[in-house]
Amino acid sequence: MVSADAATGVLLGLACGDALGRPVEFSSPEQITEQYSTLTDMVGHGTHGQPAGTVTDDTDLALCIARSLAEQAAFDGQDIADRFAAWYDDGPFDVGLMTADAISEYQTGTSWRDAGREVWQRRAQGSNAGNGSIMRCAPHAIAFADGPDKLERVSKQSSAITHHDSRCQYGCVLLNHTIAGYLNGTDDPLTDAIARVEDDAPDELVETVRLVPNLVDEGQLQNTGYVVHTLQTSLYDALTADTAEEAIVASVNRGGDTDTLGAVTGALVGARFGAEALPDRWLDTLEYREELALLSKALATTEIDA
């Protein structure tokens, strides 16, 4: 039985990391240090010029998925794509290039199953495997925590709506298996997750993640938007920290793609430590706090078809 506190921690942790990182997105570690010493509190303004506690596309798109799963009581790729399109039409202040292109492709009439692939095929190697699907995929880990085969299938299908590359699809699988492992109380969820995918997932992804946490030099961790970098860095911070706050703060203060590093790390430590471990001073200003908590509980307690 999935812990309600841990399930709630996943979505609240994701949103906390996203909101903490939002005002310093694209900043270097040195710029963050110069302005804040260490950024530990929700602040306003900064990148995107939003109030403290405001989330970005990371949480917005995770909410699209969570709402769809809860309302449809099933994984419905077209419904998720429709929600992505409606969100995009509202003019969000932050949206990744590949996500925007894939949604636009879907809006021209391309199937949700094909839109991401069409965009991926047009993209040059090196710009076609961003972290835009791992940042939002955690709701699936809650909904399908007790069904690893279903979880793998929907994680790949959901990623491919915008991010077709196998590194992105299996990045979501690895992340979601790890989160589900924490939700189910397993001793070493990352090792279990790697074992599930190592025969099929891209070698670069598997071997990079396999270094976490003891075989990688922290100084070599990277803060880019490349899915392999984000997954390795967030897993490292989530697995080596003693508290949820420590992990999220470490990820955000690395600079670069701070909102997504914070979001992925936050989902992991939310599952690992539970919602009760997230600081009240963050939650007090967090956008969508109540809805995220309600959706988490719904996903954890409702039988959802895949």
Rank of each mutant, 00 (worst) to 15 (best):
137 C>K: 03
171 G>M: 10
52 A>P: 12
253 N>V: 07
195 A>D: 15
235 L>Y: 11
133 S>Y: 13
52 A>Q: 00
306 A>H: 11
145 A>Y: 00
181 G>N: 07
170 Y>D: 09
9 G>W: 00
36 Y>H: 14
215 L>W: 14
279 P>I: 05
163 H>N: 06
134 I>L: 13
144 F>Y: 15
104 S>W: 01
2 V>N: 01
246 E>P: 03
48 H>A: 13
173 V>K: 02
25 E>G: 05
92 P>T: 11
281 R>W: 10
84 F>V: 08
99 T>F: 06
119 V>W: 05
131 N>H: 13
216 V>H: 00
240 T>N: 09
256 G>K: 07
91 G>V: 06
139 P>H: 07
185 G>H: 03
25 E>V: 08
283 L>G: 08
212 V>C: 08
294 L>M: 13
1 M>I: 08
231 L>N: 06
202 P>K: 03
250 A>Q: 08
260 T>R: 01
286 L>K: 03
77 G>Q: 13
51 P>A: 07
225 G>H: 12
75 F>Y: 14
26 F>I: 02
239 L>N: 01
278 L>C: 07
215 L>Y: 15
63 L>C: 09
180 A>T: 10
263 A>H: 04
110 T>P: 11
262 G>A: 03
123 R>K: 14
189 P>W: 09
155 S>I: 04
256 G>Q: 07
182 Y>L: 11
255 G>L: 04
197 V>R: 02
244 A>Y: 01
279 P>E: 05
124 A>L: 11
121 Q>E: 15
168 C>V: 12
190 L>T: 12
185 G>W: 03
216 V>Q: 08
173 V>F: 07
82 D>C: 10
90 D>P: 01
238 A>R: 05
70 A>D: 11
46 G>R: 07
40 T>M: 04
214 N>L: 05
217 D>F: 04
273 F>R: 04
165 D>T: 08
159 S>W: 04
226 Y>W: 13
121 Q>K: 12
185 G>R: 00
72 Q>K: 15
99 T>Q: 07
223 N>W: 00
288 Y>G: 04
160 A>I: 10
161 I>D: 05
68 S>H: 00
83 R>S: 12
170 Y>K: 02
275 A>C: 04
108 T>R: 15
143 A>K: 09
119 V>Y: 04
114 D>N: 08
98 M>E: 14
19 A>S: 11
170 Y>E: 02
184 N>W: 01
121 Q>C: 15
128 N>H: 15
301 T>L: 12
36 Y>P: 10
229 H>K: 05
248 I>F: 00
289 R>M: 02
2 V>G: 00
220 Q>C: 09
136 R>W: 14
298 A>P: 00
39 L>N: 03
264 V>S: 01
258 T>V: 06
107 Q>N: 13
78 Q>H: 12
103 I>E: 05
155 S>G: 05
23 P>H: 07
95 V>I: 14
13 G>Q: 08
164 H>L: 06
138 A>D: 09
249 V>P: 09
256 G>R: 06
49 G>W: 01
71 E>V: 00
56 T>G: 02
221 L>N: 06
63 L>P: 10
172 C>R: 06
53 G>L: 08
224 T>W: 14
79 D>K: 14
30 E>I: 09
288 Y>A: 08
123 R>E: 14
105 E>I: 10
